[in-house]
Amino acid sequence: MATAVMTTLDPKSGAASRGMSDIAIRNLFIIPTILFLIVFNIFPLIYSLGYSFTDFRASSPAAANFVGLQNYRELLNDPFIWSNFAITAKYVIVSVVGQVVVGFGVALLLNRTIPFKGLITTLLLLPMMLSMAVVGLFWKLLYDPSFGIINHVLGLGTFEWLSNPDMALYAVAITDIWMWSPFVMLLSLAGLSAVPKHLYEAAAIDRAGTLYTFFRITLPLVAPILMIAIIFRTMEAFKTFDLAYILTSQPTTEVISIRLYKMAFQEWQTGRSCALAYIVLIMILAITNIYVKYLNKVKER
C-alpha cells in the first residue's frame, strides 16, 4: 500500500544520480520520526508499565522489587484518589459544557455576514494561542481579591476567587472556558458554514420556526464536527495540569494530574505513580472510545 501511493523518483534528479532509490528516500524521511517516537513516547510508555508493578523510588538507590498488582489495588481502594477523580470529573463537565455553550453560541453569532467578520474571528482566537502558564499567571492577577479587575468590574468587593475552596475549581474552569471556547467556536464555525443555505430557505418556506430549524437542521448537521471538538476538549480537560497548578493550590482543585505530579515528583513514589498514570490513560481511552462510538452513530444518521 505504502509503495502504491508513492510517485517514482525523477531519474534526472540529484538524489537519483547519487544512487538513491525511492525506498531509500522514503526511509530517510520516515525513520527519524519513528526513532523520535520510540525514544520519547513508546519506550517510556512501556518502561513505565514495567515500573507500575514495582515499588521503585527514583529518589532512593534501592533496587526495584516486583510487587505485582499491589500498586493498582491500593490506588483503586484509596478514597483520596477517588476524590481526585471526582474533582477531575466535575472540572471536565463544567469546563467542556461551558466551552461548548460559549463557543457554539459565538459561532452562531458569527455565522452571518457582519462587518469585520475576519478580524473579529481572528481576535477571538487569540486566547487559544497563548501559553497555558501565561494565561494562568495573568488570570491570577485578574482574580486578585484586592486589585483584580474582575472584582472591580463585577463590584464583588474582595471576593476570594482562588482561595475560596468552593469557588477555586470554578475559577479554574472559567479560565479554561475563556481560553478554549475559541477552539470550539472555530470548529463549529466550519460546521455551520458547511450547512447549505438552501436548506434554511427550504425550512423557511416550510414554515419552520427558528428553534425548530435550529434543532431539526442546524444541530444535526453540525453535530459530528461538534462531537470532534468535544472529544478534544474532554481529553485535554481530563489531563489539565498547568492551569490548575499555577492558579491555585486548594485541595478542592487537586485534579488527578496534580495528584499524579505530587506522587511522582514530591513523594517520589515512582512505581505507584506509574500505575496511577496507567489508570488515567485507560480512563481517557475508555471515555474517548465512548465518544468515538457515539460520533460514528451521529455520522451514520
Binding site: 430557505e201 427550504a202 418556506i205
Partner: peptide, 20 residues
C-alpha cells in the same frame, strides 16, 4: 410578510432535502 406567512411552496433545482 416572511416566507412562512406567505404560505407558498417552493421546489428548488437542487432538491434541498433535509439530510439524515
Amino acid at each position: 410578510w416572511g416566507a412562512a406567512e406567505r404560505d407558498v411552496a417552493l421546489v428548488l433545482q437542487q432538491y434541498s432535502l433535509y439530510p439524515r
